[in-house]
């Protein structure tokens, strides 16, 4: 908690010239909530450096005689495969998502045609459906109808060789793309609404085609929103769990994603190894925490627009 106490002191010191009880109360309440939001993360962090079985006094960091990195190195061993799998799945899925959502939002926002609102509604509705409502068909589709992990052959020609690990990850990535389109679509649409109609009209009068307007005008103007959607959607896919559990099933599987491995870590018959769990939780969250710290504003924008 050293962080919070220092900024606390700064806050009060700055108030001294115009000391005022109401203002002091305000800062105290703000700091109280900082403690509220940080404490579960803080206690996890200090616990991850303690040896299992000696993780008492949840707020205090371990003394030098207890300090250990064992849990972190064990967690890294366990999660290594998950890191590779999650990156291999999340990065392409996010990129394709951004592309498809941006083109869809362009065709349904900046190009005018009758009754397009019906299609817009179809997309927007897709944001809100609970995934449980498609989970049984989804499993059935990838197991019985289109088992990509078992390879794909047309006649006798093998188009995609069978590969349990990468095939399953490809299934997962495609699933994420399909169900991620609606929210990314809405983000792009809300942004495209702010692009001036006159600009598009002028280009049209000059004889620019639908494609030309997209590549020459809309896409270059989209850069800030592409950033927002990349950050938002990567975080979502990285953090997601239900699809991984459905398509991969076990944390022992070669294709297991990081959240799947994390959900089964540090639990055995002798009880829960909390230091290991906390270290693993931090490692699994690391990419999203880095992205969040660097791009907090874009993340907030993505959240509030969605």
């Amino acid at each position: 908690m050293s962080q919070t106490t220092t900024s606390d002191r700064d806050g009060i010191a700055s108030l001294l010239p115009e000391f005022n009880y109401r203002r002091l109360g305000l800062y105290l309440v703000i700091m109280l909530f900082v403690a509220f939001f940080v404490s579960p993360i803080w206690t996890g962090l200090v616990t991850s450096f303690k040896p299992p079985g000696q993780a008492t006094q949840p707020l205090l960091p371990p003394g030098p005689e207890l300090f250990t990195l064992d849990s972190w190195s064990r967690a890294l061993d366990n999660l290594g495969r998950g890191f590779v799998n999650s990156f291999a799945m999340a990065v392409p899925a996010t990129l394709v998502n951004v592309l498809l959502a941006s083109t869809a939002a362009y065709g349904l926002t900046l190009v005018d045609w009758r009754r397009q609102m019906l299609v817009v509604l179809l997309f927007v509705f897709g944001i809100f459906i609970p995934y449980q409502a498609i989970l049984v068909p989804l499993d059935n589709f990838w197991t019985n109808i289109f088992p990509l992990a078992k390879g794909l052959a047309i006649g006798n020609v093998t188009v995609i060789p069978a590969n349990q690990r990468w095939g399953t990850l490809a299934e997962l990535a495609i699933t994420h793309v399909a169900y991620g389109i609606p929210i990314c679509f809405l983000l792009f649409r809300s942004y495209y609404k702010t692009i001036s109609k006159e600009l598009i009209e002028a280009a049209k009068v000059d004889g620019a085609s639908v494609t030309r307007i997209y590549t020459r005008i809309v896409l270059p103007l989209s850069t800030p929103m592409i950033g927002v959607v990349l950050i938002y959607q990567f975080t979502q896919i990285w953090n997601e769990f239900l699809f991984s559990l459905t398509l991969i099933g076990s944390s022992a599987d070669q294709a297991a994603t990081i959240t799947l491995i994390l959900s089964g870590i540090g639990a055995d018959l002798s009880g829960t190894n909390f230091p290991l769990r906390m270290a693993a939780a931090f490692l699994a969250a690391l990419p999203t925490i880095i992205i969040y710290v660097l791009f907090a504003e874009q993340f907030a924008e993505g959240l509030s627009a969605g």
Partner: peptide, 21 residues
């Protein structure tokens, strides 16, 4: 940024924190 931080974490991660809490 601090208030919004939990929202950037996976539920799998926050569930571990709260189990410990």
């Amino acid at each position: 940024t601090i208030y919004l931080l939990p929202m950037a974490l996976s539920f799998v991660v926050t569930a571990q924190f709260w189990l410990w809490m």
